[in-house]
Computed example of a mutant assay.
Amino acid sequence: MQPININQYQPAVPTISSSNKDEEKLREQTDAFEAIILKMMLDKALDTKDSLLPEDPGRKIYKSMQNDEISKQLSGSFGYSELLYGYLTEQKSMKG
Rank of each mutant, 00 (worst) to 15 (best):
P3W: 08
P3D: 05
P3L: 11
I4F: 06
I4T: 06
I4L: 15
N5C: 07
N5M: 08
N5A: 04
I6L: 11
I6V: 14
N7I: 03
N7M: 10
N7E: 14
N7Y: 10
Q8F: 12
Y9F: 15
Q10T: 14
P11D: 15
V13A: 12
P14R: 02
P14M: 08
P14E: 11
P14G: 10
T15P: 00
T15H: 10
T15N: 11
T15D: 13
I16Y: 01
S19Q: 11
S19I: 07
S19F: 06
N20T: 08
N20D: 15
K21L: 10
K21Y: 10
K21T: 08
D22K: 11
D22R: 11
D22T: 08
D22Y: 04
E24G: 00
L26E: 01
L26K: 01
E28K: 12
E28L: 05
E28G: 00
T30A: 03
D31Q: 08
D31S: 07
D31C: 10
D31M: 09
A32W: 09
A32S: 09
A32R: 09
F33S: 11
A35C: 05
A35F: 02
A35P: 02
A35R: 03
A35Q: 02
A35I: 00
I36Y: 08
I36Q: 03
I36P: 01
I37A: 10
I37E: 04
L38V: 03
K39F: 09
M40V: 07
M41P: 00
M41W: 07
K44E: 14
K44R: 14
K44H: 08
K44V: 09
K44C: 07
A45G: 04
A45R: 03
A45P: 00
A45W: 04
L46S: 06
D50Y: 05
S51K: 10
S51F: 12
L52M: 13
L52H: 12
L53H: 03
L53Y: 08
L53E: 11
L53M: 13
L53C: 07
P54C: 10
P54N: 08
P54D: 12
E55F: 10
E55N: 13
D56E: 12
D56F: 10
P57T: 04
G58E: 07
G58R: 06
R59P: 01
K60V: 12
I61Q: 10
Y62K: 13
Y62H: 06
K63P: 00
K63M: 15
M65H: 12
M65K: 12
M65G: 02
Q66K: 15
D68T: 13
D68M: 14
E69H: 09
E69Q: 13
I70R: 06
S71K: 06
K72C: 00
K72A: 01
K72D: 01
Q73F: 06
Q73C: 05
Q73I: 09
L74G: 00
S75A: 15
S77W: 04
S77I: 07
F78N: 02
G79K: 04
Y80L: 07
Y80K: 03
S81D: 05
E82Q: 13
L83T: 09
L83V: 07
L83C: 08
L83S: 13
Y85F: 15
Y87M: 14
L88H: 09
L88K: 03
L88P: 00
L88N: 04
L88R: 06
T89V: 12
T89C: 05
E90I: 04
K92C: 01
K92H: 15
K92W: 15
M94L: 15
K95R: 14
G96H: 08
